[in-house]
Amino acid sequence: MSITVYFSSVSGSREVKQWQSEIFGFLEAKKIKYRTVDISTSNDVKEEMRKKVGNPSAMPPQVFSGDKYCGDYQKFFDALEDGKAEAFFKL
């Protein structure tokens, strides 16, 4: 099962950068393999992410486990607070 994180390398928002860092940091700390997809590389990639999420205005970071949608940063944060981060990543 592979984790995919859609993110933006050129996000103008410090908040979004912070959110992305927290997700990457968690995955690295737990030694969970993941791949990143940078939506700033092309509009097609951003549209692909939004289509997979089912929200035409979805913003990064968005997390998938295989082809299952896990959620956005808020869902990750809530799962972390509840001690259920592994469940969020569907591991």
Rank of each mutant, 00 (worst) to 15 (best):
M1K: 12
I3H: 06
I3V: 15
I3D: 07
T4K: 07
T4W: 01
T4N: 01
V5L: 13
V5D: 07
V5C: 07
Y6K: 04
Y6R: 05
F7V: 13
F7N: 09
S8R: 00
S9V: 00
V10G: 12
V10S: 15
S11P: 00
S11W: 04
G12M: 06
S13Y: 03
S13F: 03
R14G: 14
E15K: 12
V16T: 15
V16Q: 15
V16C: 10
K17S: 13
K17Y: 00
Q18F: 12
Q18Y: 13
Q18V: 08
W19F: 14
Q20C: 01
Q20G: 00
S21W: 07
S21P: 03
E22Y: 05
E22K: 11
I23F: 02
F24R: 08
F24A: 01
F24S: 06
F24N: 06
G25R: 09
F26A: 09
L27N: 10
L27G: 09
E28A: 13
E28C: 07
E28F: 06
A29R: 13
A29L: 10
K30C: 09
K30R: 15
K30Q: 15
I32P: 08
I32D: 08
I32L: 13
K33D: 15
K33N: 15
K33R: 14
Y34S: 04
Y34T: 04
Y34I: 06
V37Y: 02
D38N: 10
D38T: 04
I39E: 02
I39C: 00
I39D: 02
I39P: 01
T41Q: 15
T41P: 00
T41I: 14
S42D: 07
S42Y: 03
N43G: 11
D44P: 07
V45A: 02
V45H: 04
V45R: 05
K46E: 10
E47N: 14
E47L: 12
E48Q: 12
E48A: 12
E48M: 11
M49D: 05
R50N: 03
R50C: 02
R50E: 04
K51F: 10
K51T: 13
K52A: 13
K52C: 09
G54W: 05
P56D: 05
P56Y: 02
S57Y: 11
M59V: 12
P61R: 01
Q62L: 04
V63H: 06
F64C: 01
S65C: 15
S65M: 14
G66S: 09
G66A: 08
G66Q: 08
D67H: 06
D67P: 03
D67V: 03
D67F: 00
K68L: 11
Y69A: 07
Y69R: 07
Y69T: 01
Y69L: 13
C70V: 05
G71H: 06
Y73H: 14
F77H: 13
F77G: 01
D78E: 09
D78I: 08
D78F: 06
L80V: 07
E81T: 12
D82N: 11
A85S: 02
A85Y: 00
A85F: 02
A85T: 02
A87N: 09
F88C: 02
F88H: 05
K90C: 12
K90A: 14
K90E: 14
L91N: 11
L91H: 10
L91P: 09
